[in-house]
């Protein structure tokens, strides 16, 4: 059956990566630290929030879920590029990439296998936090649809940050440089895009006030705000977040042109695919021409 699938489910690179990863002490250590951070902050917050109360409102407790989700997203933003930024450059530094490229493994297979193995590990990290989610669920306050929205955002973000790290790794020969750039770009996506969006929103408000004498609203801000992973994730619970008060007289929920999670996926899945495409190209020793020269 495997033979007939274009991308073998367990190809040799995946087997080797899994084997290598699971044999080091680093893996359980990273898992333990990850759970410690996620669990520590969540339980710490729970303790501070509810220890002095005799009752709680399930509707309010979604903020606990929100904090846990955002925390996990930020951690994904840090772990994913860290894991992938050394994959290709590490092979180069170890002087094993050339050998790998002379085998029957295509550059596409090498790049995708390395990405899948890294994403599988991040998947394991996220999966391992499910008990924390289960405890948070005791306090209620979230619908299954919202939960799906959160995990779709995670999935797309994992792919995005993973591809970003992979791209840097294929681009730069040294893992150090690749990691720094991958983290820089991740930080920009997590924080930079939010700052830029807020700046844009404020500027437009100011411009409209000066030009028209009143604040008209700029609903198109959604297309910028929803690109920020954190804002997009928060919008699963509070849709108005991605409108930044620019909803043009209507309510925020009405002004949103497209479901934010869907928009997020529609933009970032192709971006990830593009990053992976260029990664494969940079890994390929013999490149096929992208465009044929126009006939003269």
């Amino acid at each position: 059956m495997q033979k007939y699938l274009g991308f073998q489910v367990m190809n040799p690179v995946l087997v080797k990566e899994f084997r290598g990863r699971m044999r080091t002490i680093k893996t359980p250590l990273l898992l333990a630290i990850y759970l410690l951070v996620v669990g520590g902050i969540t339980f710490g917050y729970m303790y501070l929030r509810y220890s002095n109360q005799v009752f709680f409102r399930p509707g309010e407790s979604k903020e606990l879920f929100l904090i846990l989700s955002v925390l996990q997203l930020i951690l994904i933003g840090f772990v994913a590029p860290g894991l992938t930024a050394g994959t290709i450059s590490g092979e180069r530094e170890r002087q094993t990439l050339n050998i790998l490229l002379t085998t029957h493994l295509s550059p596409t297979k090498i790049v995708l296998s390395k990405l899948v193995s890294s994403l599988a590990f991040i998947g394991l990290l996220v999966f391992a936090t499910l008990p924390v989610y289960a405890i948070v669920f005791l306090y209620g306050g979230i619908s299954p649809g919202q939960l799906v929205g959160v995990f779709v955002t995670y999935l797309v973000s994992m792919l995005l940050f993973g591809s970003l790290g992979m791209f840097c790794s294929a681009w730069f020969k040294r893992t150090g440089v690749s990691t720094v750039l991958a983290y820089g770009l991740s930080l920009f996506l997590l924080g930079g895009t939010a700052i830029l969006t807020l700046f844009l929103s404020e500027y437009i408000s100011m411009y409209q006030y000066r030009t028209y004498g009143s604040h008209v609203g700029f609903p198109e801000i959604f297309y910028f705000a929803a690109l920020n992973p954190v804002m997009n994730l928060v919008s699963v619970f509070e849709p108005s977040v991605v409108m930044l008060g620019q909803s043009n007289g209507t309510s925020a929920a009405q002004a949103i042109p497209i479901q934010p999670t869907l928009y997020y996926a529609l933009v970032y899945v192709p971006v990830s695919a593009l990053l992976l495409f260029f990664s494969v190209r940079m890994v390929s020793p013999v490149k096929k021409k992208l465009f044929r020269k126009a006939a003269r």
């Binding site: 080797k16 084997r19 170890r94 002087q95 094993t96 050339n98 050998i99």
Partner: peptide, 14 residues
């Protein structure tokens, strides 16, 4: 072809 470069590394943990 079977190619052996002048310098090559091996994987740890295998």
């Amino acid at each position: 072809i079977g190619y052996m470069p002048d310098f090559f590394g091996v994987y740890d943990n295998l």
